[in-house]
């Protein structure tokens, strides 16, 4: 395995949980809901995936458990913000607190156990292609899932009637409701999808990235995922690019250090955040990009008038 190949694989490993969580949140936001609880759902996914894999012995059951945990947690958010129209920002923050506490309790008995790693699934023939084969077709299930989800969501949002309906709700829930679309039901489904994706991201952390359970192991990746959605101006393929860029910047910083570049490491650690801000600014400078894509009723509560 060559140097660049290896670095690329590291970048992709770092980016995959971000892609998974962000693609879910993208759908949620496209439907007009802002769920800031990604970090909480992710950590719940991580602990339940780990627990599931330990108890059953199968990492695939672990992944399933992570998805269920993330999904269940997101429904809690959905009940508060959609049914009870509570403030979405505050509810999302509360979800994160709850998730960090609850995951710590669930995970207490799993500390210090080596995890079960999700196996690499080589795709026959394709993985033998020089360079690219190993990088793209010699990965684990969750990597393929992340790519599949991005393509699937892009297709769903822009090529299907259901996707059109979802975007319509995000842009103007009033009109969508007047046209007979069930705003609340679609939003529940979107929130659930977002939760399941965050759960998958958590599963990636505890089954692939570092197959173990430790408290707070998501370490802020849920927030980065949120930033990526805006960064991508709510477009799935840009989101993929953004996540890999972010991964590249943070891995690149470590390489620069190992090569002995004399920059204080704190500044190297700042890079991904500064890069995110710069790109956010560049993207938002082009008003067409944001105004066209930003769901107009993002974060606004909806109460159907009958």
């Amino acid at each position: 395995m060559g140097f660049y190949e290896a670095v690329l694989i590291s970048v992709m490993t770092a980016a995959t949980p971000l892609v998974l969580a962000a693609i879910g949140e993208l759908v949620v936001e496209r439907s007009g809901v802002l769920n800031l609880g990604v970090e909480g759902m992710m950590i719940m996914g991580a602990v339940c995936a780990f627990a599931g894999a330990q108890i059953s012995g199968s990492p695939f059951i672990g992944v399933l458990c992570g998805m269920i945990a993330g999904g269940a947690f997101s429904l809690l958010f959905g009940f508060l913000t959609l049914t009870l129209v509570a403030n979405q920002v505050a509810t999302g923050l509360a979800l994160t607190i709850l998730g960090l506490g609850l995951s710590g309790m669930i995970g207490e008995s799993f500390i210090g156990l080596p995890g079960v790693r999700l196996p690499v699934l080589d795709i026959p023939f394709l993985s033998d292609i020089p360079v690219i084969g190993r990088i793209v077709f010699g990965q684990d299930l969750l990597f393929y899932a992340s790519i599949g989800l991005v393509i699937g969501v892009a297709w769903f949002l822009f090529r299907t009637r259901a996707g059109l309906r979802l975007r319509a709700i995000g842009d103007n829930h009033g009109s969508a409701h007047a046209l007979g679309v069930s705003v609340i039901r679609v939003r529940y489904l979107a929130v659930l999808f977002g939760g399941v994706c965050s759960g998958l991201a958590g599963a990636h952390l505890s089954l692939v990235y570092t197959p173990q359970w430790v408290e707070n192991m998501s370490a802020g990746r849920g927030w980065i995922a949120l930033a990526l959605v805006v960064f991508a101006s709510w477009r799935p393929l840009r989101l993929l690019a953004g996540a890999y860029l972010f991964g590249a910047v943070s891995i690149g910083g470590l390489h620069a250090q190992a090569l002995g570049v004399g920059i204080p490491s704190q500044f190297v650690s700042m890079l991904p955040y500064l890069a995110t801000i710069v790109v956010l600014v560049l993207i938002s400078m082009d008003r067409r990009l944001t105004l066209i894509n930003r769901p107009a009723s993002l974060g606004q509560p909806f109460v159907p008038e009958r």
């Binding site: 508060l80 509810t91 923050l93 709850l98 506490g101």
Partner: peptide, 9 residues
Amino acid sequence: RLFQGALLF
């Protein structure tokens, strides 16, 4: 923490 989260909810 759980308690705080629940209170807020």
